[in-house]
Amino acid sequence: MEINKKVSEALNSVREKTPLVHHITNYVTVNDCANITLAIGGSPVMADDINEVRDMVSLASAFVINIGTLNSRTVEAMLEGGKRANELNIPVVLDPVGAGATAYRTEIAKRILDEVKLSVVRGNLSEIKTLYGIETQTKGVDSGETIDENADEFTMAKEVAKNFAKKLNTVVAITGAVDIITDGETLYTAHNGHKIMAKITGTGCMCTSLIGSYLGAADSALIAALAGITSMSIAGEVAYENLDKNNEGTGTLKSRIIDGIYNLNENVIIERGRINEE
């Protein structure tokens, strides 16, 4: 319950501070990322041109890099923005969407890791394993692997996350059926969410935007990552429970996830949050 309280305090901080969260993200989910940022209490900006990225990052409380739809123009803006954020001690979160799917995508993700100091890296198991250096399978930009909490793979995933976090001196979050969040020392597993969320494009991207919002207001990157993931997962649960199963589906679900974030409060987090420290 103590960790749920810390997450709820982080939510209150976002809503008090209204952090400006600068995104360079993908055009498939850019509107969803903007709306989820607004719903949690942040202020989104989606400027990706290299001619203004340094100025825009300078105004921000956090910077989100999402490589979902890569092109050479935005890659340079991502790197320039990340370096500017580092100069100003503005936290940066990377979503390495589809790392491992193509050589170019993997190369760019690793280049960002090398050239930008990151506060949080959030990805699925395949993406994180690829960046860590373990051969894996991907299916487009989706994970080819899932985490079974009772399998040896789950133990391996926790070790990969911890070791990678230590190597990068950052927070690594692996999202899936069970989420793993660690700074290399402390490790949390989070157990909220619903499998139907995988049927909606952009739930991972929106989760990263939430982490960016929390990073812009919280003192701890570890708590920010945990709070973003827990918030998204609880909203997904609530959204699914509120569906009329006879005539509503994934379109309504996405809207209700955003509603769930907008209506999220301290009581909901404390009552519903299922977080373990390991």
Results as ranks from 00 to 15, higher is better:
Asp152Arg: 13
Met197Ile: 08
Asn150Ser: 08
Gly236Glu: 09
Lys162Asp: 10
Lys195Trp: 07
Ile234Leu: 02
Gly140Arg: 10
Ala225Arg: 09
Glu237Ala: 07
Ile234Asp: 10
Thr138Gly: 11
Val172Asp: 06
Gly216Ile: 00
Ser220Tyr: 05
Ile174Asp: 13
Asp183Lys: 07
Lys139Arg: 14
Glu159Leu: 15
Gly228Lys: 09
Ala224Trp: 08
Asn169Thr: 08
Ile174Asn: 11
Val178Ser: 10
Val172Asn: 14
Gly176Asn: 08
Ala227Arg: 12
Lys162Phe: 09
Met206Ala: 01
Ala198Gln: 05
Lys139His: 12
Val172His: 08
Glu149Arg: 13
Ile196Lys: 13
Thr201Gly: 00
Asp179Ile: 03
Glu237Phe: 02
Asn192Phe: 05
Val238Arg: 08
His194Met: 12
Thr186Ser: 14
Glu145Ala: 04
Gly216Pro: 06
Ala239Lys: 06
Ala151Ile: 09
Thr186Asp: 10
Glu185Pro: 12
Met197Lys: 14
Asp219Tyr: 02
Gly216Arg: 06
Phe154Glu: 02
Val172Ile: 13
Lys199Phe: 04
Glu145Met: 11
Ala239Thr: 04
Asp152Phe: 15
Leu168Thr: 02
Thr175His: 13
Asp219Trp: 05
Leu222Asn: 01
Ile181Phe: 05
Ala173Asn: 03
Thr230Gly: 04
Thr146Phe: 12
Gly202Met: 05
Ala161Asn: 04
Val172Thr: 08
Met197Gln: 11
Thr146Tyr: 15
Ala235Cys: 11
Ala165Asp: 04
Gly193Gln: 04
Ala198Ile: 01
Ile200Thr: 15
Ala190Asn: 03
Val141Trp: 08
Ser143Met: 11
Ile147Trp: 03
Leu187Glu: 02
Ser213Lys: 00
Cys205Thr: 04
Ile181Trp: 05
Gly228Asn: 05
Thr230Pro: 12
Ser143Phe: 10
Ala221Trp: 06
Met232Cys: 04
Val178Thr: 14
Ala227Pro: 07
Ala198Pro: 03
Ser231Gly: 00
Ala224Tyr: 09
Glu153Gln: 11
Ile223His: 01
Glu185Ala: 10
Glu149Trp: 14
Met232His: 08
Ser143Pro: 11
Thr230Leu: 15
Phe154Tyr: 11
Leu168Cys: 01
Thr182Val: 01
Glu159Met: 11
Ile181Thr: 01
Ala227Leu: 02
Val141Gly: 00
Lys139Val: 12
Ala198Gly: 06
Asp152Cys: 12
Thr230Gln: 15
Leu222His: 03
Tyr214Asn: 01
Ile174Cys: 10
Ile234Lys: 01
Ser233Asn: 14
Thr138Cys: 14
Thr182Pro: 02
Asn192Glu: 09
Leu215Lys: 07
Leu210Met: 12
Leu187Tyr: 07
Met206Ile: 00
Val171Lys: 10
Thr208His: 02
Gly176His: 01
Ser143Ala: 13
Thr189Leu: 08
Leu215Thr: 07
Gly204Gln: 15
Val178Gln: 07
Lys167Val: 11
Ala173Met: 06
Ile223Arg: 10
Asn150Trp: 14
Thr138Lys: 15
Ile229Ala: 07
Thr208Leu: 01
Val171Trp: 03
Asn192Gly: 06
Ser231Asn: 05
Thr189Glu: 02
Lys162Gly: 12
Ala235Lys: 15
Thr155Gln: 15
Glu185Gly: 13
Ser213Arg: 00
Gly216Asn: 04
His194Gln: 14
Met206Tyr: 00
Ser233Cys: 15
Thr146Asp: 14
